[in-house]
């Protein structure tokens, strides 16, 4: 019984029965399949998170994003500037209590280097309804290469709790045809 010492004193020499052994082998192999699936996706898959990250002070990232926004501003939406940078270029979006700034306009099928960082607390970049979720830290500039494959209006919801206004923190990315 599991509540009493093992019946056989030398329990570690007992033969393992076939049924258990077969399952252990299957489960072990399945573990290897799942492990190598992640490795395989890094080699062949299209959806992997970028490892390109730089340390940066919040002030510096704010300055870079402001400069970018000033340079590429095309219009405003609900008082928030909309930046449209040339296809394939570097674009910036910062997180702060409680907004994603600025709004980005991207072209479908073009690859952008999106620079993400926070200037205060941690935030969560949740692109909806595509459903891409990336953590955003203050002090770390994360460069994510992304290629929109659909046109339309996409929202960036904050999905890392960031205080009492958390649920009002929403940003926008427009994807348009060329």
């Amino acid at each position: 019984m599991a509540l009493t010492p093992p019946e056989a004193k030398i329990w570690w020499n007992e033969k393992v029965e076939r049924g258990e052994l077969v399952w252990i082998v299957i489960a072990f192999l399945w573990g290897l399949v799942m492990f190598f699936m992640m490795v395989y996706w890094h080699l062949e898959g299209q959806q992997n998170l970028s490892n390109e990250v730089y340390r940066i002070s919040p002030e510096k990232f704010l300055a870079k994003t402001e400069k970018f926004t000033e340079q590429y501003k095309v219009r405003e939406e609900a008082g928030i500037p909309v930046a449209k940078a040339p296809a394939g270029s570097d674009v910036y979006m910062l997180a702060r209590l409680w907004e994603w700034w600025p709004i980005l306009e991207l072209e479908k099928g073009q690859t952008y280097r999106v620079h993400l960082s926070s200037v205060d607390w941690q935030h969560g970049f949740s692109l909806q309804p595509v459903n891409v979720n990336i953590q955003v830290h203050p002090g770390l500039e994360h460069v994510v290469t992304i290629t929109p494959t659909q046109t339309g209006e996409f929202s960036v919801v904050c999905n890392e709790f960031c205080g009492v206004g958390h649920h009002t923190m929403i940003g926008r990315i427009h994807v348009v045809d060329k």
């Binding site: 949740s126 459903n131 999905n159 958390h166 009002t168």
Partner: peptide, 22 residues
């Protein structure tokens, strides 16, 4: 379906921009 955890209002009624989850 993408709904955030730790989130008080999934209708975003107080937000400057609007968004509807499915």
């Amino acid at each position: 379906l993408g709904v955030s955890r730790r989130h008080w209002d999934i209708t975003f009624s107080d937000a400057a921009l609007s968004f509807d989850y499915p």
